[in-house]
């Protein structure tokens, strides 16, 4: 089971102040741990995709491209491009939401998500029927993350229950924000800059622990050992284009 694991939710430093590793570091860690591919999902953009694609090519892994799209309902949806059309739709969706907002802001409406859903795979921690209607059954996955956090686990249980009720498959990711555990400190500092606070006053805005690094497939398998039928491995074989492929 562990051999097929691919990290599908990775934020690079191109998610401004929300990621603490450059795409090269992420691709390097991925190759080091024997992962065949990795998906980069920067916040509201595909800014890191080109560098990640080049780094992945150099490291001998496949680069999946996506973006974490902020929705007007307050939820963020990591969307992965499954096909060339999906990549085009993702870029159009981002362009539309950015055109009407100030720099660094903007959110897509649920209707826009539905409009540009073709060729995209949606991972969500808030599975519901509207997403199924928008993206189509088989293109929506309920995302589980485990960072050794008691409250997160309580949320996971509710996601599993809801996904099973809706017949949505589960996908395990680590919500990676940095390549190595030590980079958590950098992310904490970035968080302080983003929130305009100091380390001493940031309190619970900071990371709870250093678990958002790139983990080995074996580690991920251990983490999700109680859900053997869920994680990403079923999803990994699904092809994802990269910017280079699009240009051809």
């Amino acid at each position: 089971m562990t051999e097929g694991y691919v990290e599908l939710h990775t934020r690079s430093g191109f998610s401004f102040l929300e990621g603490a590793a450059v795409p090269e570091e992420l691709a390097g860690a991925c190759a080091q741990f024997g992962m065949p591919a990795m998906a980069i999902v920067d916040r509201n953009g595909v800014y890191g995709a080109a560098r990640f694609h080049m780094a992945a090519k150099k490291a001998g892994i496949r680069a999946h491209i996506g973006s974490e799209i902020t929705c007007t309902n307050g939820v963020s949806y990591p969307l992965l491009a499954e096909t060339r059309e999906g990549y085009q739709n993702l870029c159009r969706l981002i362009t539309r939401m950015k055109l009407r907002a100030k720099k660094g802001e903007g959110a897509a409406t649920p209707e826009e998500l539905a409009e540009f859903a073709r060729g995209l795979i949606c991972m969500t921690r808030h599975p519901d029927e509207r997403l199924l209607e928008a993206f189509g059954r088989g293109n929506v996955y309920a995302e589980l993350q485990r960072h050794y956090d008691r409250r997160e686990e309580a949320r996971n249980q509710s996601i599993v229950e809801r996904a099973r009720r809706l017949g949505i498959p589960l996908v395990a990711t680590n919500g990676v924000a940095y390549a190595r555990p030590a980079q958590r400190e950098l992310l904490d500092v970035f968080t302080c800059v983003r929130k305009k606070v100091t380390l001493a006053t940031a309190g619970r805005l900071l990371e709870r622990n250093s678990e958002r690094h790139v983990k080995t497939p074996a580690e991920m398998a251990r983490l999700f050992a109680d859900l053997p039928d869920s994680p990403t491995w079923a999803m990994n074989s699904r092809a994802t284009p990269c910017p280079r492929a699009k240009r051809r």
Binding site: H147, Y148, D149, R150, E153, E185, D188, R208, N209, S210
Partner: peptide, 23 residues
């Protein structure tokens, strides 16, 4: 048992801490 629940912090101070909890 349930766990471990992992926390760590104050890494910038002279008194950093970390621990794993189990119920």
């Amino acid at each position: 048992l349930a766990g471990p629940w992992r926390t760590s912090g104050d890494w910038w101070t002279a008194d950093p801490w970390s621990r794993d909890e189990w119920d």
